[in-house]
């Protein structure tokens, strides 16, 4: 895990290429994935589609649904190429086609807010059926958790760097703490905190914080120890107190490490918030996914997933932009 938060680890193959040359391969990959998705929709939904076609009067082989149930999906596709037209537009697909997900995404964001009875245009508040509302709920918990986690992580790292006892006693347990699948404890943490009267944002934020503090600790310990012997010696010849060494040398030189770990931490924090929403059905992308899974609304799950993905990308991008600005200001980056 230590390597993951090394700022230099991000420099992988291809970074030397100009920006416009980097795009085509990525675009090609995305298109290939979309093509695979469209093809996969056919065998995934073939049984439901054939049943619907049979009801509409199309001849299907084999004619009985019981026989079809025991057959492989691909065999059914090959035997009924004429009846598959509705694969990409069925009502309750096992795997919705990409455009169906996009339609659901539009319906549950823009359309719901503009035209829905509870949308922002008619009622003045965000509709609780729209993904915008759920995304904001998740984002709130993510930010609070991220803030707690980052502060805790930096604090622990400062302690670990300055105290041998803390280094020896806390660090092993911090590593062990990450081998515990904390996300699995989410329901318990929420129930326990609920029983002592804490609910709403805090329980989710606690889970987010737990997930996000570790990358920050590891990255910051590395960063705070990154000044070399020469620099430390200079501080010694100035007879600088520990506090000044920290604020004038250690903290500034740890900034690149800090940002590298913050990027990991905020993504982890989002995962924590989403999982924290699973047990309490009170809004948020996680709650939306669980509801979708209960009612068989696959398009709804996929739309929530897409929003979560977009949020993750946006958050990481925002931290990266902040990183560029800060490093440029500090003169550590051209």
């Amino acid at each position: 895990m230590a390597e993951a938060s090394d700022p230099k680890a991000g420099a992988t193959a291809g970074t030397g290429w100009p920006r416009w040359l980097r795009l085509p391969p990525v675009l090609g990959m995305v298109l290939a994935l979309l093509a695979i998705w469209y093809v996969a929709v056919v065998p995934m939904n073939v049984k439901e589609v054939l049943t619907a076609a049979e009801r509409a009067g199309v001849e299907v082989s084999p004619p009985s649904a019981v026989d079809r149930r025991d057959m492989g999906n691909w065999a059914l596709v090959l035997r009924n190429p004429h009846a598959l037209g509705d694969s990409w537009s069925s009502d309750r697909p096992k795997l919705p086609a990409p455009h169906q997900v996009l339609v659901e995404l539009y319906d549950s964001t823009i359309d719901e807010e503009l035209n829905g009875r509870r949308g922002i245009v008619r009622s003045g508040t965000l509709s609780n059926r729209s993904l915008v509302y759920h995304a904001l709920v998740t984002l709130n918990a993510t930010f609070l958790g991220f803030l707690i986690g980052a502060l805790l992580g930096v604090g622990l790292a400062v302690g670990i760097v300055h105290s041998r006892v803390m280094d020896m006693s806390v660090m092993p347990w911090a590593i062990v703490s990450q081998t515990i699948p904390i996300v699995a404890l989410a329901p318990m943490i929420i129930v326990v905190l609920y029983s002592i009267g804490v609910q709403g944002l805090i329980p989710k934020a606690v889970i987010s914080a737990y997930l996000s503090f570790f990358p920050v600790v590891v990255g910051m310990v590395k960063g705070l120890r990154s000044p070399d012997a020469m620099q430390m010696d200079l501080m010694r010849t100035y007879s600088a107190p520990t506090a000044s060494v920290l604020t004038k040398l250690r903290l500034p030189s740890s900034i690149p490490y800090l940002f590298a770990s913050l990027k990991i931490a905020i993504a982890a924090s989002l995962v924590g918030a989403i999982v924290g929403e699973l047990p309490v059905q009170k809004g948020g992308l996680g709650a939306r996914m669980l509801a979708g899974s209960y009612y068989g609304q696959t398009a709804q799950i996929w739309a929530a997933l897409l929003v979560a993905a977009a949020l993750a990308a946006l958050l990481v991008y925002a931290i990266a932009a902040l990183e560029r600005r800060t490093l440029r200001r500090m003169g550590m980056m051209p």
């Binding site: 291809g14 980097r22 391969p25 990959m29 989403i274 993750a312």
Partner: peptide, 26 residues
Amino acid sequence: RRGLLPLGNFMAALPIVGTAPILVMW
């Protein structure tokens, strides 16, 4: 490599746990 690596980096940061309900359904 140049196509998959940025995509892989992106996917690695995503909340993939969210696909759990879909896969349980499948």
